[in-house]
């Protein structure tokens, strides 16, 4: 009976420990996440004191995160109404982008890879968009062509918006940024 007990303890400990560790770092860990509106960021990932979960996540693939003074990457998986971003819907990104030397806004899958779409336009940079008279941002993301700044989406399925800000004062204090300083993601309609 003692051997059975020991086997149970070892099996439970090793199994649960390994499975929970794998689960915790299979995607971006919840530890160290900062949420501003619909956007998420992990500002600690580019610092000297990166937390053990982020460190483990980054070591599981070929990752080179942006340094804390170099820039910050913001990821959105949901629109402002809380629904998951889906290629069957149309979205409008509007508002402001914090002060930067340059930014890019891209559409990627859950692993951060751009989609292979017929039109070779996976992202916009700050130099590429057409702005209104007030200088504000307005980008429409949809699977079908749109007038103005159009960011093509996959025909269906989930995707992410990735906003990368380069050389910005926001990078070290992402958590203190107000949602109003980042683009809003409004869902217009769905097929």
């Amino acid at each position: 009976m003692r051997i059975l007990d020991l086997a149970y303890i070892l099996g439970l400990g090793a199994g649960l420990g390994l499975v929970s560790a794998h689960w915790a770092v299979a995607g971006r860990p919840a530890v160290g996440k900062v949420e501003v509106g619909s956007w998420m960021a992990w500002p600690g990932s580019g610092s000297r004191g990166v937390d053990p979960y982020m460190r483990a996540y980054l070591a599981r693939g070929v990752h080179l995160p942006l340094g804390a003074g170099e820039g910050v990457e913001l990821i959105a998986e949901r629109s402002d109404d809380g629904a998951h971003l889906d290629g069957r819907c149309r979205y409008r990104l509007s508002g402001n982008v914090p002060t930067t030397r340059g930014w890019t806004l891209g559409v990627t899958d859950g692993a951060g890879r751009p989609f292979a779409l017929p039109l070779d336009r996976a992202s916009f940079s700050d130099a590429e968009i057409v702005r209104g008279e007030d200088g504000a941002l307005s980008i429409v993301a949809a699977a079908a062509p749109q007038s103005g700044n159009w960011l093509p989406l996959p025909a269906a399925g989930r995707f992410q918006f990735r906003l990368r800000l380069y050389d910005t004062p926001v990078s070290s204090q992402t958590g203190e940024t107000r949602a109003a300083n980042l683009p809003r993601i409004a869902r217009l309609d769905c097929r």
Binding site: Y8, I9, L10, G11, L12, G13, A14, G15, L16, G17, L18, S20, A21, A24
Partner: peptide
């Protein structure tokens, strides 16, 4: 077992 799991984790 749970304590061991925490250590293994």
């Amino acid at each position: 077992g749970l304590m061991l799991a925490a250590i293994v984790h």
